[in-house]
Amino acid sequence: MKTRLSNIELKNPVIPASGTYGFGEEFAQVYDLNILGGISFKGTTREARYGNALPRIAECGGYGMINAVGLQNPGVEHVVAHELPRLRELYKGVVIANVSGFSIDDYVFTSQLMDQAPEVDIIEVNISCPNVHNGGMAFGTSPEAAAEVTRAVKAATRKPIYMKLSPNVTDIVSIAKACEEAGADGLCLINTMLGMRIDIRRRQPIIANRYGGYSGPGIFPIALRMVNQVARATSLPIIGCGGISSAEDVVEMMMAGASAVEIGAANLINPTICKDIIEALPDVMAANRIEHLSEIIGVVN
Protein backbone atom coordinates (compact mmCIF):
# COMPACT_ATOMS: atom_id res chain seq x y z
CA MET A 1 0.00 0.00 0.00
CA LYS A 2 3.07 2.25 0.03
CA THR A 3 3.21 5.39 -2.05
CA ARG A 4 5.41 8.48 -2.40
CA LEU A 5 5.02 12.23 -2.30
CA SER A 6 8.22 13.86 -3.61
CA ASN A 7 11.06 12.20 -1.65
CA ILE A 8 8.78 11.12 1.20
CA GLU A 9 7.42 7.60 1.55
CA LEU A 10 3.90 7.11 2.91
CA LYS A 11 2.91 3.70 4.32
CA ASN A 12 -0.41 4.08 2.51
CA PRO A 13 -2.08 6.81 0.43
CA VAL A 14 -4.73 7.81 3.01
CA ILE A 15 -4.37 11.30 4.53
CA PRO A 16 -7.14 13.09 6.45
CA ALA A 17 -7.71 16.48 4.83
CA SER A 18 -7.04 19.77 6.52
CA GLY A 19 -10.02 21.36 8.23
CA THR A 20 -11.81 18.09 8.88
CA TYR A 21 -9.34 16.62 11.34
CA GLY A 22 -8.24 19.36 13.73
CA PHE A 23 -4.86 18.24 15.06
CA GLY A 24 -5.93 14.60 15.29
CA GLU A 25 -6.83 14.61 18.97
CA GLU A 26 -10.52 13.83 18.51
CA PHE A 27 -9.84 10.90 16.17
CA ALA A 28 -7.22 9.43 18.50
CA GLN A 29 -10.19 8.57 20.75
CA VAL A 30 -11.42 6.03 18.19
CA TYR A 31 -8.25 4.69 16.53
CA ASP A 32 -4.46 4.76 16.61
CA LEU A 33 -3.48 7.58 14.24
CA ASN A 34 -0.23 5.80 13.35
CA ILE A 35 -2.05 3.68 10.76
CA LEU A 36 -2.45 6.80 8.56
CA GLY A 37 -0.35 7.54 5.48
CA GLY A 38 -0.15 11.18 6.60
CA ILE A 39 -2.09 13.91 8.39
CA SER A 40 -2.87 17.36 6.97
CA PHE A 41 -3.66 19.45 10.02
CA LYS A 42 -6.03 22.39 10.47
CA GLY A 43 -5.31 25.30 8.10
CA THR A 44 -3.04 27.77 9.84
CA THR A 45 -2.62 31.51 9.34
CA ARG A 46 -0.12 34.08 10.59
CA GLU A 47 -2.51 35.51 13.20
CA ALA A 48 -5.12 33.69 15.30
CA ARG A 49 -8.57 33.76 13.67
CA TYR A 50 -12.03 33.16 15.10
CA GLY A 51 -13.47 32.73 11.62
CA ASN A 52 -16.95 33.47 10.31
CA ALA A 53 -20.25 34.09 12.06
CA LEU A 54 -22.57 31.12 12.75
CA PRO A 55 -24.21 29.18 11.22
CA ARG A 56 -21.16 27.87 9.38
CA ILE A 57 -22.55 24.50 8.32
CA ALA A 58 -25.37 23.41 6.01
CA GLU A 59 -26.68 19.96 5.10
CA CYS A 60 -26.80 18.99 1.40
CA GLY A 61 -28.97 15.90 1.41
CA GLY A 62 -27.06 12.67 1.07
CA TYR A 63 -24.46 14.31 -1.17
CA GLY A 64 -22.46 16.34 1.27
CA MET A 65 -22.34 19.56 3.19
CA ILE A 66 -21.41 23.21 2.97
CA ASN A 67 -19.03 24.84 5.40
CA ALA A 68 -17.92 28.41 5.87
CA VAL A 69 -15.75 28.12 8.96
CA GLY A 70 -13.37 30.81 7.72
CA LEU A 71 -10.02 29.37 8.80
CA GLN A 72 -10.56 29.41 12.54
CA ASN A 73 -7.15 28.62 14.05
CA PRO A 74 -4.97 29.75 16.95
CA GLY A 75 -2.25 31.27 14.70
CA VAL A 76 1.02 29.76 13.50
CA GLU A 77 3.10 30.57 16.57
CA HIS A 78 0.63 28.81 18.87
CA VAL A 79 0.34 25.88 16.46
CA VAL A 80 4.10 25.39 16.30
CA ALA A 81 4.58 25.79 20.06
CA HIS A 82 1.60 23.79 21.34
CA GLU A 83 -0.31 21.82 18.70
CA LEU A 84 2.58 20.22 16.81
CA PRO A 85 4.28 18.71 19.87
CA ARG A 86 0.88 17.30 20.92
CA LEU A 87 0.29 15.95 17.42
CA ARG A 88 3.75 14.33 17.46
CA GLU A 89 2.86 12.46 20.64
CA LEU A 90 -0.17 10.97 18.91
CA TYR A 91 1.34 10.46 15.47
CA LYS A 92 4.85 9.60 14.28
CA GLY A 93 4.10 9.56 10.51
CA VAL A 94 4.10 12.13 7.72
CA VAL A 95 2.75 15.53 8.77
CA ILE A 96 1.47 18.02 6.22
CA ALA A 97 1.17 21.65 7.33
CA ASN A 98 -1.71 23.41 5.60
CA VAL A 99 -1.01 27.15 5.51
CA SER A 100 -3.14 30.05 4.35
CA GLY A 101 -2.75 33.79 4.12
CA PHE A 102 -4.05 37.17 3.08
CA SER A 103 -0.86 38.43 1.45
CA ILE A 104 2.31 36.96 -0.06
CA ASP A 105 4.04 38.06 3.12
CA ASP A 106 1.60 36.03 5.26
CA TYR A 107 2.18 32.91 3.20
CA VAL A 108 5.95 33.29 3.44
CA PHE A 109 5.91 34.01 7.19
CA THR A 110 3.68 31.04 8.04
CA SER A 111 5.45 28.68 5.65
CA GLN A 112 8.85 29.60 7.09
CA LEU A 113 7.76 28.73 10.61
CA MET A 114 6.38 25.43 9.34
CA ASP A 115 9.61 24.83 7.43
CA GLN A 116 11.54 25.18 10.69
CA ALA A 117 9.12 23.00 12.70
CA PRO A 118 10.70 19.54 13.09
CA GLU A 119 7.28 17.83 13.06
CA VAL A 120 6.39 19.07 9.55
CA ASP A 121 7.34 17.05 6.43
CA ILE A 122 5.39 18.79 3.65
CA ILE A 123 3.89 22.28 3.41
CA GLU A 124 0.52 22.43 1.69
CA VAL A 125 -0.14 26.00 0.59
CA ASN A 126 -3.86 26.70 0.55
CA ILE A 127 -4.57 29.19 -2.23
CA SER A 128 -8.14 27.98 -2.46
CA CYS A 129 -10.13 28.69 0.70
CA PRO A 130 -13.49 30.01 -0.55
CA ASN A 131 -14.60 31.23 2.87
CA VAL A 132 -12.42 34.21 3.64
CA HIS A 133 -12.54 37.60 1.99
CA ASN A 134 -9.51 39.09 0.26
CA GLY A 135 -7.46 36.02 0.84
CA GLY A 136 -7.15 32.32 0.27
CA MET A 137 -8.91 31.70 -2.98
CA ALA A 138 -7.95 35.11 -4.38
CA PHE A 139 -4.46 33.67 -4.90
CA GLY A 140 -5.70 30.48 -6.47
CA THR A 141 -7.92 31.85 -9.20
CA SER A 142 -5.30 33.33 -11.50
CA PRO A 143 -2.16 31.60 -12.82
CA GLU A 144 -0.08 34.73 -12.15
CA ALA A 145 -1.08 35.04 -8.48
CA ALA A 146 -0.73 31.29 -7.90
CA ALA A 147 2.77 31.40 -9.40
CA GLU A 148 3.71 34.41 -7.31
CA VAL A 149 2.76 32.66 -4.04
CA THR A 150 4.55 29.50 -5.16
CA ARG A 151 7.76 31.34 -6.04
CA ALA A 152 7.77 33.35 -2.80
CA VAL A 153 7.17 30.32 -0.57
CA LYS A 154 9.67 28.15 -2.48
CA ALA A 155 12.36 30.83 -2.12
CA ALA A 156 11.87 30.95 1.67
CA THR A 157 11.65 27.22 2.49
CA ARG A 158 13.41 23.86 1.97
CA LYS A 159 10.62 21.32 2.53
CA PRO A 160 8.40 20.06 -0.33
CA ILE A 161 5.78 22.66 -1.24
CA TYR A 162 2.37 21.38 -2.42
CA MET A 163 -0.07 23.97 -3.73
CA LYS A 164 -3.72 23.27 -2.84
CA LEU A 165 -5.84 24.31 -5.77
CA SER A 166 -9.37 25.63 -6.05
CA PRO A 167 -12.00 24.08 -8.32
CA ASN A 168 -13.75 27.45 -8.53
CA VAL A 169 -11.89 28.45 -11.69
CA THR A 170 -12.50 28.18 -15.41
CA ASP A 171 -9.19 26.46 -16.16
CA ILE A 172 -7.50 24.57 -13.34
CA VAL A 173 -4.87 23.24 -15.73
CA SER A 174 -3.40 26.68 -16.42
CA ILE A 175 -3.12 27.32 -12.66
CA ALA A 176 -1.54 23.91 -12.05
CA LYS A 177 0.99 24.55 -14.82
CA ALA A 178 1.78 28.00 -13.43
CA CYS A 179 2.52 26.44 -10.03
CA GLU A 180 4.71 23.79 -11.64
CA GLU A 181 6.68 26.38 -13.59
CA ALA A 182 7.08 28.46 -10.42
CA GLY A 183 8.76 25.55 -8.68
CA ALA A 184 6.01 23.73 -6.75
CA ASP A 185 6.97 20.20 -5.67
CA GLY A 186 3.43 18.91 -5.89
CA LEU A 187 -0.25 19.76 -6.02
CA CYS A 188 -3.28 18.98 -3.91
CA LEU A 189 -6.73 19.21 -5.48
CA ILE A 190 -9.52 19.99 -5.12
CA ASN A 191 -10.56 22.27 -2.29
CA THR A 192 -14.31 22.74 -1.74
CA MET A 193 -16.65 24.10 -4.42
CA LEU A 194 -18.42 27.36 -3.71
CA GLY A 195 -22.05 26.58 -2.94
CA MET A 196 -25.16 27.83 -1.22
CA ARG A 197 -28.30 26.64 0.57
CA ILE A 198 -31.37 28.72 1.43
CA ASP A 199 -33.74 28.24 4.36
CA ILE A 200 -37.00 28.61 2.42
CA ARG A 201 -39.04 29.22 5.57
CA ARG A 202 -36.88 32.16 6.70
CA ARG A 203 -36.08 33.25 3.11
CA GLN A 204 -32.43 33.56 4.13
CA PRO A 205 -29.17 31.79 3.24
CA ILE A 206 -28.49 29.04 5.80
CA ILE A 207 -24.80 29.95 6.00
CA ALA A 208 -24.18 33.30 7.74
CA ASN A 209 -21.40 33.94 5.23
CA ARG A 210 -24.05 33.41 2.48
CA TYR A 211 -21.84 31.05 0.44
CA GLY A 212 -19.60 28.25 1.60
CA GLY A 213 -17.51 25.35 0.40
CA TYR A 214 -19.45 22.31 -0.80
CA SER A 215 -17.78 18.99 -0.05
CA GLY A 216 -18.69 15.33 0.25
CA PRO A 217 -19.51 12.49 -2.17
CA GLY A 218 -21.34 14.91 -4.50
CA ILE A 219 -18.06 16.50 -5.64
CA PHE A 220 -16.13 13.26 -6.20
CA PRO A 221 -16.71 13.06 -10.00
CA ILE A 222 -15.62 16.68 -10.39
CA ALA A 223 -12.52 16.17 -8.26
CA LEU A 224 -11.67 13.06 -10.25
CA ARG A 225 -12.02 14.93 -13.54
CA MET A 226 -9.84 17.82 -12.38
CA VAL A 227 -7.14 15.51 -10.98
CA ASN A 228 -7.12 13.70 -14.30
CA GLN A 229 -6.87 16.92 -16.32
CA VAL A 230 -4.00 18.17 -14.17
CA ALA A 231 -2.23 14.79 -14.15
CA ARG A 232 -2.26 14.78 -17.96
CA ALA A 233 -0.88 18.32 -18.17
CA THR A 234 1.82 18.37 -15.48
CA SER A 235 4.40 15.95 -14.12
CA LEU A 236 3.98 16.91 -10.45
CA PRO A 237 2.81 14.41 -7.82
CA ILE A 238 -0.83 15.03 -6.93
CA ILE A 239 -2.75 14.55 -3.70
CA GLY A 240 -6.30 13.84 -4.90
CA CYS A 241 -9.05 15.23 -2.71
CA GLY A 242 -12.80 15.67 -2.96
CA GLY A 243 -15.63 13.42 -1.82
CA ILE A 244 -13.59 10.27 -1.28
CA SER A 245 -15.40 7.93 1.09
CA SER A 246 -14.37 4.36 0.24
CA ALA A 247 -11.32 2.27 -0.70
CA GLU A 248 -12.78 2.01 -4.23
CA ASP A 249 -12.80 5.82 -4.42
CA VAL A 250 -9.12 5.82 -3.43
CA VAL A 251 -8.23 3.42 -6.24
CA GLU A 252 -10.30 5.45 -8.69
CA MET A 253 -8.61 8.70 -7.65
CA MET A 254 -5.17 7.13 -8.02
CA MET A 255 -6.07 5.75 -11.44
CA ALA A 256 -6.98 9.32 -12.39
CA GLY A 257 -3.45 10.40 -11.48
CA ALA A 258 -3.18 10.94 -7.72
CA SER A 259 -0.18 9.61 -5.79
CA ALA A 260 -2.04 9.92 -2.49
CA VAL A 261 -5.48 11.04 -1.38
CA GLU A 262 -7.02 13.25 1.25
CA ILE A 263 -10.26 12.32 3.00
CA GLY A 264 -12.29 15.32 4.13
CA ALA A 265 -16.01 15.54 4.82
CA ALA A 266 -16.31 11.78 5.37
CA ASN A 267 -14.32 12.13 8.62
CA LEU A 268 -17.04 14.35 10.03
CA ILE A 269 -19.83 11.81 9.68
CA ASN A 270 -17.82 8.66 10.29
CA PRO A 271 -14.86 9.33 12.58
CA THR A 272 -13.26 5.95 11.73
CA ILE A 273 -13.56 6.35 7.94
CA CYS A 274 -9.78 6.66 7.33
CA LYS A 275 -9.15 3.49 9.34
CA ASP A 276 -12.02 1.71 7.56
CA ILE A 277 -10.61 2.69 4.14
CA ILE A 278 -7.05 1.62 5.04
CA GLU A 279 -8.36 -1.74 6.26
CA ALA A 280 -10.49 -2.25 3.14
CA LEU A 281 -7.79 -1.23 0.66
CA PRO A 282 -5.86 -4.56 0.48
CA ASP A 283 -9.04 -6.45 -0.47
CA VAL A 284 -10.01 -3.87 -3.09
CA MET A 285 -6.47 -4.03 -4.49
CA ALA A 286 -6.57 -7.83 -4.59
CA ALA A 287 -9.99 -7.88 -6.22
CA ASN A 288 -8.65 -5.59 -8.95
CA ARG A 289 -5.30 -7.42 -9.38
CA ILE A 290 -3.26 -4.50 -8.04
CA GLU A 291 0.00 -5.64 -6.47
CA HIS A 292 1.49 -2.20 -5.81
CA LEU A 293 -0.41 1.08 -5.88
CA SER A 294 2.39 2.61 -7.96
CA GLU A 295 1.11 0.51 -10.91
CA ILE A 296 -2.18 2.36 -11.05
CA ILE A 297 -1.19 6.03 -10.58
CA GLY A 298 -2.51 7.75 -13.70
CA VAL A 299 -3.13 4.40 -15.42
CA VAL A 300 -6.04 5.86 -17.42
CA ASN A 301 -3.77 8.45 -19.05
Binding site: R56, N67, L268
Partner: peptide, 17 residues
Protein backbone atom coordinates in the same frame (compact mmCIF):
# COMPACT_ATOMS: atom_id res chain seq x y z
CA UNK B 1 -27.34 24.79 20.68
CA UNK B 2 -25.72 25.42 17.27
CA UNK B 3 -25.73 23.88 13.83
CA UNK B 4 -22.93 21.34 13.97
CA UNK B 5 -20.75 19.64 11.40
CA UNK B 6 -19.06 16.71 13.11
CA UNK B 7 -20.32 17.03 16.69
CA UNK B 8 -17.02 15.92 18.21
CA UNK B 9 -14.68 18.88 17.88
CA UNK B 10 -12.95 18.40 14.53
CA UNK B 11 -14.53 20.87 12.11
CA UNK B 12 -14.91 24.17 14.04
CA UNK B 13 -18.42 24.47 12.58
CA UNK B 14 -20.04 25.43 15.90
CA UNK B 15 -17.44 27.67 17.58
CA UNK B 16 -18.83 30.52 19.65
CA UNK B 17 -16.99 33.47 21.17
Amino acid sequence: EERMGCGFGACMGCSIQ
